[in-house]
Design a protein around this nucleic acid. Structure first.
Lengths: 136, 136
DNA sequence: CTTTGTGCAAATTCTTTGCACCAAA
DNA sequence: TTTGGTGCAAAGAATTTGCACAAAG
């Protein structure tokens, strides 16, 4: 399983010490590119790490986000979702099945008004995914 | 005060019965295009309507959103913000002062993969607003 | 009178805090 | 031996639910 090495590399590249918990969270995010919530991650890791705490998940995700290793997705009104940072991409949320898909970032001419300094853009599409569209 | 007439019109256009509470919420959203939260609206209307309940604000906003009269903005991780639906526009959040600005929607070539049916796009910019940028 | 809207209190959910303990540099 | 990381229990904040009463058609 080389995802482990991969996870450690990501942490080190972002100057985060690769503790067991942090490594496991990153590993999970690499293997599950389905934009999990903090609780999804907790529930998934909890069985193999019985003493794991939700607080730790929140701590880890906060650290990862502050250091640019993950990206918080707020496409959902309920809870925040997380995505390992790779290339820049947009998100598509299917309003029928609720799944979130990675979508190529649209090329857009950024014509911000005078004086606005942009650091980042998030693009969220809403609609029906191919699967839901086909069945009905 | 013709905002009242305006508010009633908006409600009727969306086939929502213009109760006092609904009309007041819409009036507030028309007059305050600063993307308030449910609580902002509650706090603002509460003094003149002492029996008003937060539940009602949530109910009203839900109805308005379901009928397309307002738009929920989830640019913020904490709470949902609301915007009266007018033309299509993007949002810019200043990471220094936290204010949210309306920005012209960027022209973008939407090249969604085969099969995805788009209903809506949200574009959220993050950065520094002119005011914060000028005062260094 | 039947349906729709309002609002209180309580419950729920997601996230954060305070603090003590453990581990690594 | 000091700093950083983890995790429990409790607190906090935003939103929802259940239910009863009020209002409108």
């Amino acid at each position: 399983m080389k995802t482990l090495q991969n996870a450690i590399e990501i942490l080190e590249r972002h100057e985060i010490r690769p503790s067991v918990q942090r490594t496991e969270v990153v590993k999970y995010l690499i293997e599950h590119r389905c934009h999990p919530t903090a609780d999804d991650i907790f529930m998934a890791l909890s069985p193999e790490m019985p003493t794991l705490s939700r607080t730790t998940i929140y701590n880890v995700l906060k650290t990862l986000e502050e250091n640019g290793a993950v990206r918080a997705i707020v496409i959902d009104e309920k809870n925040v979702r997380y995505d390992i940072c790779v290339d820049d991409h947009a998100h598509f949320k299917c309003s029928r099945c609720g799944r979130i898909f990675d979508i190529e970032m649209p090329r857009m001419e950024r014509q911000l008004p005078e004086g606005f300094e942009m650091e980042n853009v998030d693009v969220y599409y809403y609609g029906i995914c191919p699967e839901c569209a086909s069945k009905q």
